[in-house]
Computed example of a mutant assay.
Amino acid sequence: MIAVLIAEMSVQGLDYRRVITKVKVTPKKPRGRAKRGHFGGYPQVVLDLGA
């Protein structure tokens, strides 16, 4: 949908870049057990098998 809108704006001669730069993007906060740098966190307990 977004690609179609941007393409149509370009065809109509509208500057979509100017519109996009007005949008303030804030990063999402991790939820659940997710830890920074690890997708989905650690869903299982790490076992020490004495290896």
Results as ranks from 00 to 15, higher is better:
H38F: 13
L47G: 04
R18D: 01
P43R: 01
G40F: 02
L5I: 15
K29H: 00
M9K: 06
K29M: 09
R36C: 05
G41N: 00
I6M: 09
T21K: 11
K22S: 13
L14H: 13
H38R: 14
R17G: 10
P27K: 10
Y16H: 15
K22N: 10
S10P: 01
L14V: 14
A51T: 09
L47A: 07
A3W: 08
I6P: 00
T26N: 11
E8P: 01
R33G: 13
V46Y: 00
P43Y: 05
A34D: 02
T21D: 10
G32R: 04
D48L: 00
D15V: 05
F39E: 06
L49E: 08
D48T: 04
H38Q: 12
K35Y: 01
A51Y: 04
G13Q: 05
R17V: 09
R31W: 00
A34T: 09
V23N: 07
A51R: 15
R33Q: 05
V25H: 05
G37W: 02
R31S: 05
M1Q: 08
L47T: 12
T26W: 04
E8Y: 03
A3K: 11
Y16S: 14
L47F: 08
R31I: 12
K24T: 03
A34H: 03
V4F: 08
G50E: 12
F39L: 12
L49R: 07
G32C: 02
Y42I: 11
V19C: 02
I2G: 15
A3T: 08
